[in-house]
């Protein structure tokens, strides 16, 4: 089956004109900005909304801003989701929730704006575990696990990643990341066993390449250089290609990233992060 193609408006108009996207953006902005605008912070995240660079995750951790929302546009050339045996440019919405200072839950849903009548779907969830906190010589170390049963296998990744920051260089700060993505994904399938009238599940590792899953297979690495606190330049190898990106940290708003996949195809990402532990407004304002 050959998928029907529409004339694609240029980015970022493509991102903004779809009614689904507009509805969601409106609700997100109105709802969350209204609630949390006094607490907006900044974070550097990848296209899935977890601490990272462009496609790759990092081992950096945010302990005081436990809630993150992100939206990212990925061009067709480097799309992650393989829909009906083909790739389309995609918008990935992300939610990050820090449960403890060593465990985060990440959720994603994907939209393909160039495809009619498929709505929003391809849900994905993963867990991020902090194994080691950065010290003088040792890097941050994080394990990312995708539990089986996720609707979108294409976002499935099981990763170990280390990141190290180098500051006081005289020309800004550097963050270096090195990681490895398991080229297998754990999946579940129904078996004959039943419990409380519910069909049981069995689990098995599958080769990602056999399923055309091209996200984070093998070794990946990334470097971010921040010459000034609100500006960063990124370069990364995601296991397949080399990408570059520009990061703008807007103090009151969050962060915006412009990414160049293969240094040719443009994408973008936007995220907000908020603390979940704060005093009530009335308590905060008392005596001021």
């Amino acid at each position: 089956m050959i998928p029907s193609q529409k004339i694609k408006p240029p980015f970022p108009i493509a991102l903004l004109i779809t009614p689904e996207c507009k509805s969601i953006l409106k609700v997100w902005l109105a709802f969350f900005c209204f609630l949390f605008i006094p607490f907006i912070g900044q974070a550097q995240v990848n296209v899935l909304g977890k601490a990272g660079h462009i496609m790759t995750p990092s081992a950096k951790w945010q302990t005081d801003r436990q809630l993150g929302f992100s939206v990212a546009y990925i061009p067709q050339s480097h799309a992650i989701n393989r829909f009906m045996k083909d790739y389309y440019s995609e918008i990935i919405f992300g939610l990050r929730l820090g449960l403890t200072d060593f465990l985060e839950v990440n959720l994603n849903i994907t939209q393909l704006p160039d495809r009619d009548r498929i709505g929003i779907g391809d849900r994905h969830a993963d867990l991020r575990l902090r194994l080691f906190k950065e010290k003088k010589l040792m890097p941050d170390l994080v394990l990312i696990l995708s539990p089986p049963g996720s609707v979108s296998d294409y976002l499935g990744h099981n990763v170990i990643v280390a990141s190290k920051s180098i500051t006081d260089t005289g020309i800004g700060s550097f963050d270096y990341t090195l990681g490895y993505g398991l080229p297998y994904v754990l999946d579940s399938y129904p078996n004959n066993r039943r419990f409380l009238g519910i069909t049981g599940q069995s689990y098995k590792f599958y080769s990602k390449s056999a399923r055309n899953i091209r996200y984070l297979n093998g070794v990946f690495t990334a470097l971010t250089w921040k010459p000034i606190s609100w500006l960063g330049l990124m370069v990364e190898y995601d296991g397949e290609d080399i990408h570059g990106g520009l990061l703008l940290k807007l103090k009151e708003v969050g962060s915006i990233q412009v990414n160049a996949y293969d240094f040719k195809n443009l994408g973008a990402a936007f995220n907000l992060s908020f603390p979940l532990q704060f005093e009530s407004r009335e308590l905060r304002r008392y005596g001021k």
């Binding site: 929730l97 839950v105 409380l196 009238g197 519910i198 979940l276 532990q277 009530s280």
Partner: peptide, 18 residues
Amino acid sequence: LIKQYGNIDIGLYGAMTE
């Protein structure tokens, strides 16, 4: 699983029924 942040609670759940 319920995490209490103070003013905010966030919970994750899984259910298995008929």
